[in-house]
């Protein structure tokens, strides 16, 4: 017969090893997915609504998304100037600002860019909310900026050919071109009074966002190369405005730990009494 102490040591050694192995196994599960979203960082103080070069933008994590020529519908284009967009976002609980940044070798009056959002609970096709055959889709909200006017147009669409400016213009935009790079800030209130046509942004919730860019250069005969549906587009990605910090998880953990501790005391007391 082994002495009790020695046996206990064995028990503890194996038990701890097994528990640790299980913990490591379950902890590694959560981190497999890549980052596929724009995170609007919560900040206090003024949002840089008009200033694409404001220092505070560096506090927002950049996310890069690849672009393709628009091929889903006529008229197509086979090649586009802009290959990637870099996106940052900030919000203060009332307003949000999205900074779109991309390389474009020339500044042209017809340079333009847009953000697209799904509106409401229904899924919308990324190509202007194009009708789907087996799924009832929803509308999209498009925030369109053009260098010529340096203003945003707040638009709605539900399929190609249905794009039109909204009655209520809620979006602002401001672009700055320098060193072969466009930086454009789009801004709006997180929520508007028109939930049926405007995307509503609730901090903490993921919504779908997509991007489009037109390089306004002209070909040899003076025609625009990228215009209308001939543009660079992205797929749907996620956008989320950070929720205010939530400490309830710590509270639940503390309650659970206290319950476990209480359980131990009761158990040990019962065992001692039983003997």
């Amino acid at each position: 017969m082994k002495p009790a102490n020695q046996m206990m040591k064995q028990v503890l050694r194996y038990g701890t090893a097994a528990t640790m192995a299980m913990m490591i196994g379950s902890a590694s599960l959560g981190y497999a997915q890549e980052s596929v979203s724009v995170r609007a960082t919560l900040m206090t103080g003024g949002l840089p609504l008009e200033d694409p070069n404001a220092a505070v933008w560096s506090s927002a994590p950049p996310a890069t998304f690849p672009m393709s020529p628009q091929v889903h519908w006529q008229n197509r284009i086979q090649e586009v100037t802009v290959k990637d967009v870099i996106v940052r976002a900030l919000h203060d609980g009332n307003q949000m600002a999205v900074l779109l940044e991309y390389a474009d070798p020339t500044q042209d009056p017809d340079d333009a860019a847009a953000l697209e959002f799904m509106v409401g609970d229904k899924k919308a096709h990324f190509a202007h909310g194009q009708p789907m055959l087996q799924v009832e889709g929803g509308p999209v909200n498009i925030w369109f900026w053009k260098n010529k006017t340096d203003k945003a147009v707040d638009m709605s669409a539900k399929g190609f050919g249905t794009l039109k400016p909204q009655e209520h213009q809620d979006v602002k935009a401001k672009g700055v071109y320098a060193n072969g790079t466009w930086k454009i800030v789009f801004s709006r209130n997180l929520s508007t009074g028109h939930a049926e046509e405007d995307v509503q942004i609730t901090p903490g919730e993921f919504i779908s966002i997509a991007f489009a860019v037109w390089d306004g250069r002209k070909d040899g005969s003076g025609d625009l190369v990228e215009k209308g549906s001939q543009k660079a587009v992205s797929s749907w990605w996620y956008f989320r405005a950070d929720a205010p910090p939530d400490y309830s998880g710590y509270m639940y953990a503390a309650i659970a730990a206290a319950l476990a501790l209480g359980f131990q005391f009761v158990l040990i007391r019962k065992l001692k009494k039983g003997q």
Partner: peptide, 23 residues
């Protein structure tokens, strides 16, 4: 006796904390 309540708390935190991952 100390480790067990901490483990329970840690697991509870992990299962109630809001995820940063998209759906």
């Amino acid at each position: 006796l100390i480790f067990f309540p901490l483990l329970v708390g840690w697991q509870t935190y992990g299962s109630t904390a809001v995820s940063d991952l998209p759906p």
